[in-house]
Amino acid sequence: MEHPPTALQISAAQVESIHSRLKKRPRHSENLIQAALFIAGAISILTTLGILYELGKEALLFFASPEVNLLDFLTGTKWQPSIGQFGVLPLVNATLMTSFIAMLIALPLGLAAAIYLSEYASPRSRKILKPILEILAGVPTVVYGYFALTFMTPLLRAVLGADNVQIYNTLSAGLVMGIMILPLVCSMSEDALSSVPHSLREASFGLGATRLETTLKVVVPAALSGIIAAFILGVSRAVGETMIVAVAAGSGPNFTFNPLQGAETMTGYIARISGGDLAYDTPDYNSIFAIGLLLFLITLGLNILSRRLVARYREVYE
């Protein structure tokens, strides 16, 4: 067998062949893929900008109409467009109430379930439980809506008395919304908890910590930024949720802090009006864009807040 030539024995022809192999060659598919990926990214950004433009334009029409004044819109407690009263607070209040009730369910239960899955469950039960939880996340929200109306509300009426609980009420919608959001909070929190390095748990156990001490004082603090992100995403989801509240929370803008009464949320109102028969270019109709814009700003604000909190509470680990 011939030995490979050493550096000194390379012929001119071999040098030539090496040089030709080093030559830069065009890779068209690479460029094509890059362009396709760029377009995909650009489309989503442009769509968002388009939505913002449309919302802003129509909302501007609303605020430009003589019946409307921005301050009254933001501080008024009566929403009766037919008689020219455009105070958005009843709708905002209903949205905040249903979201608050939902998070009251979703945060503790979701976090507890996440802690169980990540810290306590055996690998086998985790393998079974996690997909089941994710199925819950795949149920269409309209199904949840009717679940609220036909199961949760009768249940509440049976427990709290039919006289006290209206057929449409924010408590029922909020509770079911909490169940809907629970898998999201749980799944994201679980991801955050399981990505805490195993070495930190060992360090804690090695110091004589119990599993509970390890979980609450080491793992959860280390995963806090991810848990906060899960929570804020859950709130955004609750604020934007439409079907459940449209079906179960009621359809009259009612300014009340009583969760047993019906009240229309921002999304519920938008859904009702946009499906209704109001004439275009009336302030009534245009109001939904103003509300949509407000909703957009609320979720945007929550997202910014979540980024801040995540950065602030981050316990960096290797």
């Binding site: 070495s199 930190l200 060992e202 360090a203 804690s204 090695g206 004589g208």
Partner: peptide, 25 residues
């Protein structure tokens, strides 16, 4: 484990301050 402590292969301090690392256990 309280009476028989352990030091691991890779240093694994808690993502806390030096002070808190000591007092935690």
């Amino acid at each position: 484990r309280r009476l028989i402590g352990m030091v691991f292969q890779k240093p694994n301090p808690f993502p806390k301050s030096i002070y808190d690392n000591i007092v935690w256990g």
